[in-house]
Amino acid sequence: MQASDSAKNADDVDLRVRRRLREIRTQRGLTLEDVATRADIDVSTLSRLESGKRRLALDHLPRLASALSVTTDELMRAPEAEDPRVRGASHTAHGVTYWPLTRGGPAGGLHAFKIRVSARRRTPPEELPVHDGQEWLYVLSGNLRLVLGDRDFVIKPGEAAEFSTWTPHWFGVVDGPVEAIALFGPHGERMHVRT
């Protein structure tokens, strides 16, 4: 009975480390190749370790912990139950206030915001911005004016718009403030939220 208990404990530790390894790696936006290079482990070996197709060896632990900039204890500990609530301060730029609805997350991910467009944001700039990415807007209240190149749209509550941000674009209001949900790729977030 004791032999099976110790085998079960070893399996629990192996599973916990594999989960923590993947969790920490993705939280930090690191690829398998990034961690494998830092840990001096073959990428295929690291992939098999994470997927459970290969058992962890004791000599892997310090190298993996170092590659992730954590202690071995942190790599082996059970993950804490994460608070699912997203907390972040609002940010206002060019008449639009942004409330984050997602955490930073791995690089390359989409970022969601609730936005409020001021009633004063009525006139597009002479030169409409372009940048890499896609944007998606869903209007909750008010009438949103969306200018895409030489086309002009009114997006009403309950309607959504999706467009390539390589198209010159701008959004504002028609007759009063607008509340919407917006999804931006990292380039769009930098253009709108961080300028």
Rank of each mutant, 00 (worst) to 15 (best):
L49K: 00
T167Q: 13
L101P: 00
G142L: 11
H60E: 05
H111K: 11
T71G: 10
G52T: 15
K114Q: 12
P125V: 07
H94F: 05
E50M: 05
E135A: 14
G52N: 10
F113W: 00
A89K: 15
H131Q: 04
F113G: 01
T31R: 12
S47P: 10
L49S: 03
G105D: 08
L140F: 07
K114V: 09
I41A: 14
R55N: 14
G52R: 13
S164D: 12
L64Y: 12
A65V: 06
R28N: 14
I24T: 10
S164A: 13
P124R: 13
A112V: 01
E23N: 02
A119G: 00
G95R: 00
H94V: 03
V86M: 11
G105E: 12
T72G: 08
T72V: 13
G142D: 13
L21F: 06
T71A: 04
E162S: 09
W166D: 09
V139S: 03
R85V: 14
D83F: 14
L32S: 01
R55W: 07
L46K: 08
G52F: 08
G109H: 07
R151N: 05
V130H: 12
V70W: 05
G88W: 10
R77P: 03
T165A: 13
R22L: 10
D40I: 05
P62R: 14
P106A: 15
T45R: 00
R87D: 06
A93Q: 13
V70S: 11
P106C: 09
L68I: 12
I41D: 00
W136R: 12
R145P: 00
G133N: 06
L61V: 14
K156E: 15
L148W: 07
D40Y: 08
D152V: 09
L61C: 09
L49F: 05
Q134P: 02
P100H: 06
T97L: 02
G52K: 13
R55V: 09
R85F: 14
T165S: 13
G158L: 04
E127N: 11
L58E: 05
R116L: 09
L148D: 06
E50G: 03
S47Y: 14
K156S: 13
R85L: 13
F163E: 00
Q27C: 01
S66D: 11
R116K: 11
T31E: 11
T37P: 02
R54T: 15
T167S: 05
V35Y: 07
A36H: 03
D73W: 11
R22I: 07
M76I: 15
R121H: 00
L146H: 10
A160V: 07
R120M: 00
R63G: 11
A67I: 04
V96Y: 01
H94K: 11
R87G: 09
R48H: 12
V43C: 04
R63D: 09
L148T: 05
L68N: 06
V35W: 03
L137V: 15
S66V: 01
K53W: 06
P157F: 11
R103A: 14
F163H: 01
Y138D: 06
L56C: 05
